[in-house]
Every structure is written in structure tokens, then in C-alpha cells.
Amino acid sequence: MTQTDLTAQTQQTPEPKRPAKRSYTLITGCVLAGLIALLALVSLVWLPYASDDTSGGRLTGPAGDHLLGTDKLGRDLFTQLMTGSRIAFEAGLGSVLIAAAVGVTLGVLAAFAQGWLDDTVSAFLDILIAFPTLLLAMLIVAARSASLGSAVLAIGLAQSAVVARLVRVLAKRVLAQDYITAARTSGTSWPRIVAGHVLPNIWPTLVVNLALQFGLAVLAEAGLSYLGLGAPPPNASWGRMLQEAQATFITAPAGALAPGILLVLLVIGVNLIADGLRDALDPAARRRRA
């Protein structure tokens, strides 16, 4: 009783207009991720140096011509950072797009499965989730070549299993609602039910999850690049910058610190955005649901 009574109350009393509470989480996240996005965007049209320009002298440290100094091959660190942020965004967006496309399709199909088929599909997804991304990446690199595309494909496929499992649960919950039965008795076809009822209702939770997956994909790409399974030189990925700067960390820490800090900032930024979205989307959803 208590529960229903309470929800009924929030239902029927008109909501007093609350002063709009700013979501500082969302704003901080957007600022962090936005700054790095700006670096990435600028790198598309302008770079301080060419990415294979080794004219700067080795490990100069921050100095006039080179904002952050140069690496052991004499390349400009800031240039590499900018290219790296572009690659980070490409990796994040690419993986999330693959994960969303494959994951949502699989998840929705799985939500319709019943009985033994349902059990089989969930078991398959669980196995896929347990399968290490690294192994998958190695397989794909072996079949194709070490490139950003291979890394993104591996990360995206690995994440699509996670997304599929989430979508399956969310879609099953929506499919059990009476408005789905109402749509069926109104003659609405299944594709239209999925597009018109299921997807809009799982959307808020899905978006939050995809934002988190973006951060994870950026980290995963850095990891794969560190291992040499990502974008090949001269494209500087943060992961490879870390790997290359590892040997000279004590003498020239900037080469490792700079990409490390940007990586952390971007992932924190994206996670804050995810948290902010959760806060922004969930109470509304709850009020509508109640």
C-alpha cells in the first residue's frame, strides 16, 4: 500500500516548479571532454608541426618552439598530443557506434526469444562478454593488419555484447508492459512496436551506458596501442606515446605525463557526462513511469 499510495500522491499533486538545479557534473564533464574535443578538431585542420617532422632535436623539454618539448625522435610532443586526441575520439565514437548498432540489434532480437532460445542467447552473450578484448583484437589484427580500424572493430565488437545484454533486459521489461499488448491489439506490427515503443523507452538508460562505453573504449584503444595493436606510426596515439616515453620517463617525464593526464581527463570527463545524463534523464523517467 505504502508504495502505491506514495506514488499516487506524487502523481496527483501538481509538481511545484523547483528552481532548476544545475547539473555541475554534466557541466564539468562537458568542459573536460569538450577541451580535448577541441584539440582533436583543430588537429584536423592545423598542427604545429607535421607528425613526421623530426627536426626538433631529441627530448628538448618545454622550450620556445616546442610547447611541451620533443620526444626521443625529435617530434613535437604537443603535435602528437593533438593527433592522439583525434585518435582517441575516433576510437571512442567508432567503437560506440559499432557497439550500439550490433548491440541494440542483437539485444532487441534476444528480448523476443523465449524458452530455450532465450537461455541459449543469454549464455552466448555471457561467453562473448567473458572473451578478452585483447584476444579478439589479436585475432582481428592477425586477419587484417594493425590499424586503428582493427582496434576499433575489436573494441566495438567486444562492447556490443555488453550493450546487447543490457538492451535485452531493458527491452524485455518494456515488452511486458500493457501498452505493448495494447499496440498489438491495435494491429501495430512488431517493427513499428520496436521503433515506436521499445527504443524510445530504453533510450535514456542506453545513452548513459553508451557514454560509459565511450570512456572504456578510449582506455581500451590506448591499451591496444601501447601493445602495438593500434594505429601504426606515424599516427601518434596516446597509448603508443606512453609506450615510447616509458624508457625515458625519469629523465623526460613530460612525454609520458602529458598523454597520461589527457587520457585520465577525457575518461573522467566522459564518465561525468554519463553520470550527469543519468541524473538528468532518470528522475524524469521515474516520474513518467510512476
Binding site: Q177, D178, Y179, T181, A182, A183, S186, G187, T188, S189, R192, G196, H197, P200, N201, A285, R288, R289, A290
Partner: peptide, 24 residues
């Protein structure tokens, strides 16, 4: 249906909910 909360899609406007049979 019995439950007037679960029988209306929370993300649709009432107009769209009511017209669903006509459109489908």
C-alpha cells in the same frame, strides 16, 4: 487494461497514444 499506468506509453503524447489504432 487494468493498470492505467502500464497501459500508456510514458514517452508518447496522449494524441499519439489514442490515434495508434487508427494509424496501425
Amino acid at each position: 487494461f487494468q493498470d492505467p499506468y502500464s497501459s500508456l506509453d510514458p514517452r508518447r503524447r496522449v494524441g499519439s497514444i489514442v490515434s495508434e489504432p487508427l494509424r496501425s
